[in-house]
């Protein structure tokens, strides 16, 4: 199942990249690109003069071969500094110019950030969702749902700076404004919270709906008829069933977090995969950008697979054979 999916994903990303707006030759040459001889020379060096099919096969070979090609900075590295806008050249920073090293290195950081965001989500959003459901149609319920709506509708690029102002400038809980110092550093807390606010509403709502649906079930009444404390009725008899739809959302959210930490990484200046995507897009570092896109697509596929496997953990009726 995995292999054909990967090939299709590769074909799509490659085609998009091939016909897309980034011209790698121009990125390498910078202002020199108008020189036709130089242009043709670099194009040939990069192997871009070959037919589409050959290029694609070559690309697949590189990818399955495991080293994923080289950043354009390996080809002279001149152009990077002339690339557009801010954060230029960042894609070329570091010692390695191998696409795999760059993508994996950045991904590790994004993964750590996403992990915390996911922890916040599963702990707080699910807790709030359960609470809202149990206190259905009371002020508590309305307060939780309303604040989740607010939290999720304010974009990260608004919440981020606001939190920075509050917790760095006004009440200096955190000393530095951004950057990354490992997942167990204090700097990881704010960005993870901001990252978690976006999908918050989805999870709160799903959890609430899941629990509300289970609330009236016969088996919940049976659990109560046994005299079980309400806390155990929820935890043992309701949560697992209610979590089945939530898991679907959590799967989508997880791939979303890993691939969409773009704004958050930008705001908090975290060198994650989102930031790498923006930088390479801006600088025109085609091979790295392609690596990022392909990798993100693969993450989504993998997370979906994992989600399917987790269903089995939640629902005893699901079997894999």
């Amino acid at each position: 199942m995995l292999a054909p999916t990967v090939i299709i994903v590769m074909l799509i990303t490659f085609t998009l990249g091939y016909y897309g707006p980034i011209d790698p030759v121009r990125a390498v040459l910078g202002e020199e690109w108008e020189d036709e001889a130089r242009y043709a020379e670099v194009k040939k060096a990069l192997g871009l003069d070959r037919p589409f099919v050959i290029q694609f096969l070559d690309y697949m070979g590189t990818m399955f071969g495991g080293h994923w090609g080289q950043s354009l900075s390996a080809f002279g590295g001149v152009a990077s500094d002339r690339a557009v806008g801010e954060g230029r050249g960042a894609g070329f920073s570091g010692t390695s110019t191998g696409v795999r090293e760059m993508v994996l290195g950045r991904l590790a950081i994004s993964a750590q950030l996403s992990f915390w965001a996911l922890v916040f989500l599963t702990v707080f959003a699910i807790l709030l969702g359960v609470l809202a459901a149990v206190k259905q149609n009371t002020t508590v319920d309305y307060a939780i749902v309303t604040s989740s709506i607010i939290a999720s509708s304010i974009p990260a690029y608004v919440i981020g700076p606001v939190l920075l102002i509050i917790f760095v400038l006004k009440i200096p809980v955190f000393k530095t404004v951004g950057g990354w110092d490992g997942m167990f550093s204090r700097q990881a807390i704010l960005p993870a919270i901001v990252l978690a606010t976006g999908p918050m509403l989805v999870i709160v709502r799903q959890t609430r709906a899941g629990i509300v649906e289970v609330l009236g079930k016969d088996f919940v009444r049976t659990a109560r008829a046994k005299g079980m404390p309400e806390r155990l009725v929820v935890a043992r008899h309701m949560l697992r069933t209610a979590m089945i739809p939530v898991l679907t959302s959590l799967g989508l959210v997880t791939s979303g977090l890993l691939t969409g930490s773009l704004f958050v990484e930008q705001i908090f200046n975290i060198p994650g995969i989102g930031k790498l995507a923006i930088q390479t897009l801006m600088s025109g570092d085609h091979p790295v950008f392609m690596g990022v896109v392909l990798f993100q697509a693969l993450i989504i596929v993998t997370v979906n697979l994992l989600t399917d496997l987790l269903y089995g953990g939640l629902d005893p009726r699901v079997t894999y054979d």
């Binding site: 016969d218 049976t222 008829a225 046994k226 079980m228 043992r236 008899h237 069933t241 629902d315 005893p316």
Partner: peptide, 22 residues
Amino acid sequence: KKIRGARIAMVFQEPMTALTPT
């Protein structure tokens, strides 16, 4: 809660839905 299950127990009509599936 101290009475339910301990002093008075109930058997329900629908065995298909009255037990927790998970």
